[in-house]
Simulated assay, not measured.
Amino acid sequence: MLNALEVVTTVSVGLMVGVEFSVAFVMNRIFNALPEDSDQLARAHGGRMLGAVMPYWYISSVVLVAIRAVAGWHHPGTGLAVIAGALLIVSVIMSILLLVPINNRSKTWTPENRPADWKEQSDRWDRFHYLRVAILIAALTLLVTSLV
């Protein structure tokens, strides 16, 4: 049973990290290469789409890692899983405090109603997102390491 939990947890966290990595290093670069209005419209659509899904994915990943840590408490590597869970919690707090406020504003923007500093706000979101991706990669690395 613990093995199945570890597989489900690793796949869930791994896919989430992959999506966030893709946003940072693939999608945003594609969006930035589009003409100005298209860039902003793509980011707004992405913010609406992923903004609806990611909170549940983040919380379920934290819960899965916590369940794995409790279920495997006496197994080697549990300490690494606990640290991975703590990093996931940091990423959730960081998201709520730093990224979600920007995302909530930007997902409603259109070329007609966006603020003059929309690009600076998008760049700020990107910088925070890079940091979040680094934290998520560290969490995934620790989680996988806890299993071997």
Score class of each variant (00 low, 15 high):
residue 105 R to M: 13
residue 94 M to N: 13
residue 132 R to E: 12
residue 63 V to W: 02
residue 126 D to W: 06
residue 92 V to R: 04
residue 112 E to I: 08
residue 49 M to G: 01
residue 59 I to A: 10
residue 54 M to L: 15
residue 10 T to M: 02
residue 140 L to M: 10
residue 91 S to N: 11
residue 128 F to W: 12
residue 31 F to H: 15
residue 31 F to K: 05
residue 19 V to R: 06
residue 109 W to L: 03
residue 125 W to G: 03
residue 38 S to T: 07
residue 142 L to S: 13
residue 40 Q to S: 09
residue 34 L to Y: 03
residue 138 A to M: 12
residue 56 Y to E: 04
residue 116 A to M: 07
residue 25 F to Y: 15
residue 69 A to C: 14
residue 125 W to F: 12
residue 3 N to L: 14
residue 33 A to L: 05
residue 75 H to R: 04
residue 39 D to H: 10
residue 17 V to K: 00
residue 99 L to P: 01
residue 93 I to V: 15
residue 76 P to K: 01
residue 109 W to E: 08
residue 63 V to H: 05
residue 64 L to P: 15
residue 123 D to G: 00
residue 84 A to D: 11
residue 32 N to H: 12
residue 61 S to V: 06
residue 134 A to H: 01
residue 133 V to Y: 01
residue 83 I to K: 09
residue 45 H to K: 09
residue 47 G to A: 08
residue 101 P to W: 01
residue 38 S to F: 10
residue 3 N to W: 14
residue 11 V to M: 08
residue 15 L to N: 01
residue 136 L to I: 05
residue 8 V to D: 08
residue 9 T to S: 13
residue 146 S to R: 02
residue 67 I to F: 12
residue 137 I to G: 02
residue 80 L to G: 11
residue 72 G to W: 04
residue 79 G to C: 11
residue 108 T to Y: 00
residue 62 V to K: 00
residue 13 V to F: 02
residue 130 Y to P: 00
residue 117 D to M: 08
residue 145 T to I: 09
residue 2 L to F: 14
residue 89 I to C: 10
residue 82 V to E: 00
residue 20 E to H: 13
residue 14 G to N: 08
residue 107 K to T: 04
residue 137 I to L: 13
residue 18 G to I: 01
residue 3 N to F: 14
residue 109 W to Y: 14
residue 109 W to A: 05
residue 140 L to P: 04
residue 62 V to D: 01
residue 48 R to K: 13
residue 133 V to Q: 02
residue 54 M to H: 03
residue 38 S to W: 11
residue 33 A to G: 15
residue 60 S to K: 04
residue 124 R to I: 11
residue 120 E to W: 07
residue 51 G to Y: 06
residue 23 V to T: 04
residue 136 L to E: 06
residue 55 P to K: 05
residue 22 S to K: 00
residue 101 P to F: 09
residue 134 A to C: 13
residue 64 L to K: 07
residue 136 L to C: 03
residue 105 R to W: 05
residue 32 N to S: 12
residue 96 I to P: 00
residue 21 F to S: 07
residue 1 M to H: 10
residue 1 M to Y: 09
residue 95 S to V: 03
residue 88 L to H: 05
residue 110 T to N: 10
residue 148 V to P: 06
residue 112 E to K: 09
residue 72 G to A: 09
residue 29 R to N: 15
residue 2 L to S: 14
residue 46 G to H: 03
residue 70 V to P: 00
residue 44 A to C: 07
residue 131 L to G: 14
residue 25 F to A: 11
residue 74 H to V: 14
residue 88 L to F: 01
residue 55 P to V: 08
residue 21 F to A: 07
residue 5 L to I: 15
residue 99 L to Y: 01
residue 27 M to D: 08
residue 63 V to C: 00
residue 113 N to Y: 08
residue 10 T to F: 03
residue 81 A to G: 12
residue 104 N to S: 11
residue 71 A to I: 02
residue 99 L to D: 07
residue 85 G to F: 07
residue 13 V to K: 03
residue 33 A to P: 14
residue 59 I to M: 04
residue 99 L to S: 08
residue 30 I to G: 06
residue 25 F to H: 10
residue 84 A to Q: 05
residue 56 Y to F: 13
